[in-house]
């Protein structure tokens, strides 16, 4: 090939290069998934899912950690979703763009950049010790809720802004109030986007370890109240691997984590497609 390249050659080379980069990214992802599933799937069994851990997790299953994870996430979402969506609605629909909105937005973006272990430390100091909630589901879910709040605000805001202005105008021109317009027109149209934010947060929460280990503790019992300590799958995985309790059980836990994140995503896409068909 002669230098300089003709535009046509350049085009061909760039195309190949980009294809290679794409293939590499997909390969890395696929390799991680394959690696975890290869080591984890053999451990998986019905028993593994429905039995509680015994001997610190060396024997038995991971049932209580599945419960712990689910409870913690549901509670965190229940706290963070109304808070985040409400903030997003206020910022986009109820206040003109200005200093205030910029400050709030800047604040929430800073919040998004804070490492989760800092959230963990904050949750530990405020909820666990100062408010005396102890290592508990309550402390853990409050901390998680704070952590996912920026994501929910951000994605909800984007989704709300994406709703065509024409819909709002029509609603107002028919004599609708602001709230009727927001609740009947804007939010339904923005729902797929808002749901995406919530799902992203579920993903982040399922995998979260640092913030949770500080605030929800690592008890292996099935929790019986908001003030019980609990152990999530990711914390369980961390402890199994870190303390060398059982690498095979750790891989099993990792496989369950991975599969649950995948299923949550697939389920969401399915729901969103159904919703979009109905709504647009």
């Amino acid at each position: 090939m002669r230098w300089p390249l003709t535009p046509r050659q350049e085009q061909a080379i760039v195309r190949l290069l980009l294809l290679f980069l794409t293939a590499l990214s997909i390969f890395i992802l696929a390799f991680i998934i394959f690696f975890i599933l290869r080591h984890g799937l053999p451990v998986l069994s019905w028993e593994f899912l429905v039995r509680n851990p015994r001997e610190m997790g060396k024997e038995g299953g991971i049932f209580s950690t599945i419960i712990g994870t689910i409870v913690l996430i549901i509670l965190a979402l229940t706290l963070a979703t109304p808070l985040g969506v409400g903030t997003a609605i206020f910022l986009t629909e109820y206040t003109p763009e200005g200093r205030l909105t910029r400050i709030i937005r800047f604040g929430s973006e800073c919040l998004a950049g804070i490492p989760s272990i800092i959230f963990g430390l904050f949750g530990f100091i405020l909820f666990v010790t100062k408010l005396k909630f102890g290592w508990s589901i309550l402390s853990g879910s409050l901390t998680l809720a704070f952590m996912i709040l920026p994501t929910i605000i951000r994605t909800s805001e984007e989704a709300i802004k994406f709703v065509p202005q024409a819909y709002r105008e029509v609603s107002f021109s028919l004599g609708g109030t602001k709230w009727q317009t927001v609740s009947r027109v804007v939010l339904p149209s923005a729902l797929p986007g808002i749901a995406t934010g919530v799902i992203l947060s579920i993903g982040r929460s399922i995998g979260e370890t640092a913030a949770v280990i500080f605030t929800a503790g690592s008890a292996l019992r099935i929790p019986d109240s908001l003030f019980s300590s609990t152990r999530t799958m990711s914390v369980h995985f961390y402890i199994l691997a870190r303390e060398g309790i059982s690498l095979s059980k750790a891989y099993g836990t990792a496989a369950v984590l991975l599969i649950s994140i995948l299923s949550v995503n697939i389920f969401t896409y399915y729901l969103m497609n159904r919703f979009l068909r109905k709504y647009s």
Partner: peptide, 18 residues
């Protein structure tokens, strides 16, 4: 709200809700 009920509006581009 009552004013806007009495004075209807049709816009430049057709804009039915989805």
């Amino acid at each position: 709200l009552e004013l806007r009920r009495r004075v209807g509006m049709v816009f430049q581009r057709p804009n039915p809700f989805p």
